[in-house]
């Protein structure tokens, strides 16, 4: 980004992504709309901190961020997919499969410089396969990725023989397990990875041609196609991004748990979709922001944490989570109905 432009780019540089960039009024409206989930998050945090003194501590907040990082990273990829009016149900299985592959590479003492990139490429290829089935095969995203979700879970169980792939001594393994618990400047490594991924994805969506193509495709596929956008390629690319980020989450989770679980990532796709929707992105495509997704993931993270702090049983936690998501979506859709 080396435009030597005088004034206009500074405004564009700080604006959140999306096809409707500022114009003062539109900008204000969008900040408010984006802040609806942000306000929700803040209200939630105030409420929780009143009930639980342990909530607003640096340790606990870092803990929340670390727990959120996995879901957030997956949800960033999901945002790309949902912006094109697609859905990716396979992320949880991609996470498990790539995590298992990564653990076995590490166990075989393959250098991390090879093992991790190879895992990420594998994830991207798995995602791209879904994308190809959707764009070339003309299969509905829901079905194509449901197939991926089922088949990859099976493949993981075959690959791991249903057992965790665990610790084996070796230089690679030691370095890998260390990654899971590493801190940089007092911040857990997964959190830093999440921030880096966020910035990268935000830049792609709001400042690159590809981002525009994603929004256009979700806004109206026919229009995008007739404008000369290679719609099929864009679709393959968004599912590849989703697969790659699911694999990244798989690497992090495997390092953190010091083993790859064959059942890892079960129902993670639902948390990721929930984060995207809580962030105000439309399941119909073409409308939404990555920042919203980050906020959505944090809402889920804070909620989980708060319910734990309040000693709510995990059975009730699920009910509470469902209720909060419903509430947020209702508020959002009411706002939209008034706005139009």
């Amino acid at each position: 980004m080396v435009t030597s432009s005088p004034n206009a780019t500074t405004a564009a540089g700080t604006a959140s992504p999306g096809p409707t960039q500022p114009g003062r009024l539109a900008g204000l409206g969008r900040v408010l709309a984006a802040n609806k989930s942000l306000f929700g998050l803040l209200i939630l945090m105030v409420f929780v901190s009143l009930y639980s003194p342990n909530f607003l501590t640096v340790d606990n907040l870092l803990n929340i961020l670390r727990q959120t990082s996995i879901n957030a990273i997956i949800a960033f990829g999901m945002t790309f997919v949902i912006l094109t009016a697609g859905i990716d149900l396979s992320v949880g299985s991609v996470l498990a499969f790539t995590g298992a592959v990564c653990a076995s590479l590490v166990a075989a003492n393959v250098s991390l410089w090879v093992a991790i990139p190879a895992t990420l490429v594998l994830g991207a290829m798995l995602g791209a396969t879904s994308g190809l089935i959707i764009s070339v095969g003309g299969v509905q995203p829901f079905i194509a990725t449901l197939v991926g979700m089922t088949a990859l879970r099976g493949a993981t169980l075959v690959f791991t023989e249903g057992r965790p792939i665990g610790t084996i001594d070796g230089a690679s393994a030691d370095a890998f397990w260390a990654l899971g618990g590493a801190y940089l400047f007092g911040v857990p490594l997964p959190v830093l990875i999440m921030i880096a991924v966020f910035l990268l994805c935000w830049f792609v969506l709001s400042h690159m041609r590809f981002g525009r193509q994603v929004y256009a495709l979700g806004g109206n596929e026919q229009v995008a196609r007739l404008a000369g956008i290679a719609v099929g390629r864009v679709k393959v690319a968004v599912y590849a991004v989703s697969g790659l980020l699911a694999a990244l989450a798989g690497v992090i989770i495997t390092a953190r748990l010091e083993s790859a679980q064959p059942t890892a990532g079960t129902s993670y796709e639902l948390d990721a979709i929930a984060a995207v929707v809580l962030g105000g992105t439309s399941l119909m495509g073409g409308r939404g922001t990555l920042f919203g997704t980050l906020v959505g993931a944090l809402i889920i993270g804070v909620l989980n944490n708060a319910l734990n702090l309040m000693d709510v049983s995990s059975y009730y936690q699920m009910i509470a989570k469902g209720a909060v998501i419903l509430l947020a979506v209702l508020v959002d859709s009411r706002g939209k109905a008034r706005g139009s």
Partner: peptide, 19 residues
């Protein structure tokens, strides 16, 4: 149906032609 993305900004629509 295939000329413009109705909910998107005028700017974003115009720019599509010359991305």
């Amino acid at each position: 149906s295939d000329g413009l993305i109705q909910p998107h900004a005028i700017r974003a629509n115009m720019a599509l032609g010359a991305l």
